[in-house]
Design a protein around this nucleic acid. Structure first.
Length: 254
DNA sequence: ATGGCTTGAGTGTCAAGA
């Protein structure tokens, strides 16, 4: 089973790239973030033609999450239950017995800002809800744009980014608490090259200069982690014309 | 220099991303 996540930064702009990527990589599940569209504009028909069922939770202009799957997603949940939030950041469903949680974590803008406080509250709500989901589903995967670089290894310049947004201790503590639920960072289950990132700034030629962060992740419950055979970032789509600023992350399970 | 691109909104120019 092949699981993947990709922040496409507008599915309207990136649909051709997403269809090409699905055809080439043939994942069983692809989680999307930042679709930036309402459900009525979502390209269900094009994805169906490509062999994928889709569920979407979207809004105008911002946010928006989707799960694409070769099998029909069941028991769909939108948003974090009990957490009052107009921002469409979470969708979950069961696919082939695996509970798939697709999340677009808040950016937080700047440490100490109002948006940072929202990010921490959102993280606490996600944590509390996931604790229950994990108890109900032995096979669970949390995929998405976490907007957290868990470790200095995940940052091109740890000194410049120290205590900055995406790298601050409160954010990293929240990431460790998710891991503390029993979830494994699939990428770190394996020996990896140095300086592997999943996002590069559009500005300053960030990609060409390898100025990136690893902020897109796949976290696996113990039974799925035991089945995981590889986890990697596919940089190829980042090299295309009009790319997303994020690259897909892929985990292969036996 | 707190910028530098990109997107969506909407038609001039801003918010937001990370």
């Amino acid at each position: 089973m092949k699981l993947a996540t990709w922040n496409v930064n507008s599915l309207r702009v990136r649909l051709p790239q997403a269809l090409d990527w699905l055809a080439a990589q043939q994942p069983d599940v692809l989680c999307l973030q930042e679709t930036k569209m309402e459900d009525g504009a979502f390209p269900f028909a094009e994805l169906e033609t490509a062999g994928y069922r889709a569920i979407h939770s979207g809004q105008k202009t911002y946010n928006g999450v989707a799960i694409l799957a070769r099998s029909e997603p069941a028991d769909v949940v939108r948003d974090i239950p009990g957490f009052d939030d107009p921002q469409k950041r979470v969708i979950a469903a069961t696919v082939d017995g695996v509970r798939v949680v697709c999340a677009y974590f808040p950016n937080g803008q700047a440490v100490g800002s109002e948006k940072f406080e929202y990010k921490l509250k959102w993280l606490a709500a996600l944590q509390a809800w996931l604790a229950g989901e994990i108890s109900r589903h032995a096979e669970l995967a949390l995929l998405g744009d976490f907007n957290i670089a868990p470790d200095d290894r995940d940052v091109h310049d740890p000194v410049a980014w120290k205590d900055q947004i995406l790298c601050s201790e409160p954010e990293r503590e929240a990431f460790r608490r998710l891991v503390g639920l029993g979830l494994a960072d699939a990428f770190r289950l394996f020996d990896q090259p140095e300086k592997v990132f999943s996002w590069w700034d559009y500005r300053m030629m960030g990609f060409r200069r390898h100025l990136g962060l690893r902020i897109d992740h796949i976290l696996l419950s113990p039974s799925l982690a035991a089945r995981c055979r590889s986890c990697s970032v596919d940089k190829e789509p980042r090299k295309l014309e009009r790319p997303s600023d994020h690259a897909p992350v892929v985990a292969e399970l036996r």
